[in-house]
């Protein structure tokens, strides 16, 4: 008996073919700089934070919780980590625990506002995002926080068997997110909530719980990403958070055209992240290193991918 197509169908994995094409193009174009271990390491490191945030966002969006606060939550998290390690001289483990707990609190607050007060998730997270930005600015007086202990940076931004540690964290988060969403009943309930909330409720799904878990996942991921951000950048940057907002959303929507078209999914999002990462990194190595080129690339890639998917009916993002 044949079940749905689980093979490498062109449209479900078109992102992988395009990723291959990108690698081929850059390999022929700039073989000396592109075909180098450092390139791979750069891509992997730079996309790891995006990846962790994206997995959290996939969980929230799957449950229909539109989270706009995760990027600033990560930024404020990294400032919190910077202050804990410098002013309070806290050790790595305690800092990580506190920042992740902070992320959980952000998720809890978001879900309380949505579930109890009944605010829309977009309005809620826009509001909490601004509050988090205010906390960030108040804590730093809008200055960088320098003097992050070496021990902290090496503990998080080191390597394990030559593999960047942040990449290992991302892989772990990706596997966890995939497991929760696809291989637990609660994950299915979250998708059902996001897809047809009333039908799910009438079938006995506790939809407010799905939304709680979605925001919680997103908040926890922002906490983890905050720690990673501080270690990768090496200083507490009060403006670092928001720059992740667009790339993560771009990867998420790109991902929703892949693997399981029409659904926000972890593996599709991973493909999206590396597609964008390789493209941007390649262009930078080829000499197009201005910020506007990366942003243009991200934007055009998102529009093309989702545009095609909507046109051929595998995705409905219209409204």
């Amino acid at each position: 008996m044949r079940w749905g197509a689980e093979k490498l169908e062109l449209h479900r994995f078109s992102g992988l073919y395009i990723l291959g094409l990108f690698i081929l193009i850059f390999a022929l174009w700039i073989p000396d700089t592109f075909l180098h271990v450092s390139t791979l390491r750069n891509i992997v490191t730079s996309q790891s934070i995006t990846g962790v945030l994206a997995v959290g966002l996939v969980c929230a969006m799957a449950a229909g919780a539109f989270d706009l606060s995760f990027a600033q939550a990560a930024g404020t998290g990294s400032i919190l980590a910077a202050i804990l390690t410098t002013s309070f001289h806290m050790n790595v483990v305690l800092t990580v625990v506190i920042v992740i707990a902070y992320g959980a609190v952000v998720g809890l607050v978001n879900s309380l506002l949505v579930n109890w007060i009944g605010l829309s998730s977009i309005v809620t997270t826009l509001g909490t995002s601004s509050v988090l930005l205010a906390i960030d600015e108040k804590l730093t007086n809008e200055n960088y926080i320098a003097g992050i202990p070496r021990s902290f940076v090496t503990a998080i931004n080191g390597t394990i068997l030559g593999i960047p540690e942040v990449f290992v964290i991302m892989v772990a988060v990706v596997l966890l997110g995939w497991y929760l969403l696809v291989h637990t009943p609660q994950g299915r309930r979250m998708y059902a909530t996001g897809h047809a909330s009333e039908a799910a409720r009438l079938a006995g799904v506790r939809t407010s719980r799905s939304i709680l878990y979605g925001f919680l996942a997103s908040g926890l991921a922002a906490g983890v990403a905050g720690v990673m951000l501080l270690a990768v950048v090496g200083t507490g940057d009060p403006t670092a958070g928001p720059s992740y907002l667009l790339p993560v959303f771009a990867a998420l929507f790109l991902g929703s055209t892949q693997v399981h078209p029409g659904r926000f999914n972890v593996w599709g999002t991973v493909i999206g992240i590396f597609l964008l990462g390789v493209g941007v990194q390649g262009l930078q190595l080829a000499g197009y290193s201005e910020q506007w080129i990366s942003d243009l690339f991200n934007g055009v890639a998102l529009l093309l991918a989702t545009g095609f998917a909507v046109r051929n009916g595998t995705l409905s993002l219209r409204r």
Binding site: H183, A192, A203, G204, G262
Partner: peptide, 29 residues
Amino acid sequence: SQSLLPGFSLRENLTLAKIGTRRKGWLSL
């Protein structure tokens, strides 16, 4: 609008009220 998950598969619509397979902790597709 009230009983189906329209874009979801037959399988997901059918199992919605009782999701879960033999093994606890692993939903086997």
